[in-house]
Design a protein around this nucleic acid. Sequence first.
DNA 1: CAGTGGTCTAGACCACCCT
DNA 2: GGGTGGTCTAGACCACTGG
Lengths: 253, 253
Amino acid sequence: MSGEDAPEAKTLALDLNRNSPVPLYHQIATQIESLISTRVLKAGDRIENETDLCTRLNLSRMTVRQALQVLVDKGELIRRRGIGTYVVGERTSRKVQLTSLYDDLASAGQKPETQVLLHLTEVATEYIGSSLGLESGAEVFHIRRLRSGNGQQVAILENFLPLEFASITPEQLVEEGLYQILRRRGITMRIARQSIGARSATPEESTLLGVKTAAPVLTTERLVFDDTGRAIEFGQHVYRADAYVFETTWIEQ
Amino acid sequence: MSGEDAPEAKTLALDLNRNSPVPLYHQIATQIESLISTRVLKAGDRIENETDLCTRLNLSRMTVRQALQVLVDKGELIRRRGIGTYVVGERTSRKVQLTSLYDDLASAGQKPETQVLLHLTEVATEYIGSSLGLESGAEVFHIRRLRSGNGQQVAILENFLPLEFASITPEQLVEEGLYQILRRRGITMRIARQSIGARSATPEESTLLGVKTAAPVLTTERLVFDDTGRAIEFGQHVYRADAYVFETTWIEQ
DNA sequence: CAGTGGTCTAGACCACCCT
DNA sequence: GGGTGGTCTAGACCACTGG
């Protein structure tokens, strides 16, 4: 019997292009990732060790390690000193990234529709002002939207942004998602800190979402930072519980 | 006027111990982290560049980069080529890690209480069996617990584990959280994939949780892998919406 | 013991940003 | 052009695991 105690390490069919602008470690990572998603590599498979990869691909060890680390951070590989590198189970569902509901609906083949309920500037509350790093009494840009997909209401999106974004028009918000608009303005969103909870819908929310009074809703509160570390958006969103689920991956370091 | 256009980089007061078994990059990372949490470094502060850190601390650049990367991955620093390394806002609330509800309640100063509702082995459903990587028709260890804190019900925890864990007794489950028991058995939990949703409580759940009929509940479905990549626990949990919130951090790579 | 990944060094060149 | 982080090399020694 073989294979149980000392699993054979699988040699990886990798094809590197050293003239590509894509970094070598990234080429390796994405190719291994596709080997996993195409099930050439399966849950529990052990892959080649670092030194073999280095000599076979003529790469420095740090480069190989950087590639593998990318996949460890994504929760697709697990590595143990003295043991080897193993493939975790195939991902059963889409990963949650820093995407918007608009993107989510669009990529699910649905046509997102938006109704702008509120569009104004106002003095920020203490809580929201300090979240965004504003001075006391400063104004914020406040919007509230109803988002639908395929004619069915999905979420009420309430956002607060620094005043410089007040030039975003209701018309733009109907055409595109907020994050798309921010990206086209040169904003790179980098980090989001979010809390997820649930409660009963208020009467107003029930009406807007087209659900029964006090139906369950999924709520999120999100603070987004751009690539300079500045807080650029604070959002309080309410989702129909029967239309939305959040997915996360945690990795214990 | 100074400080707006070209922010001064802050020199970091770091103290390295080269005889410690703790890796140098880890010493650097934890010390910078504590400078942030003690607000010596504040949101938006720019820190020393890599080469300065290298020469000042007499370290190789890769080591310094590894240290900073740890904090980038945690969402505490943001780095941009040509620009510098900046501190993101202070963390306003506890981070979610791969902890259990038991740990959460205990660290919040509450006394967790557990009632074991179900404790048996049974043939796994197709869904649960394949999640855990079991063969069709294989048995699983199935438990269901009611978790309370300070005398108030908080959650119904339903878990499915491979048969080898069936030796966990109801008495142990009353004394400790499941994850504590697994850790003491030498299991190192490494990755959790979880989806979070909401719905109305079933009549049975309402009774157990002591909430009104059809009250909103937060639901999670979680698959946990150990450090060999093996799926070791599948859980479907139901939380009182008024007693629990999930917090996550997302980083756009 | 041999095999594995973890840490670390001392360089190199490059892409990007601002002025 | 000068400063920044991003990528990459070619080594070294060590810690942990398993037989």
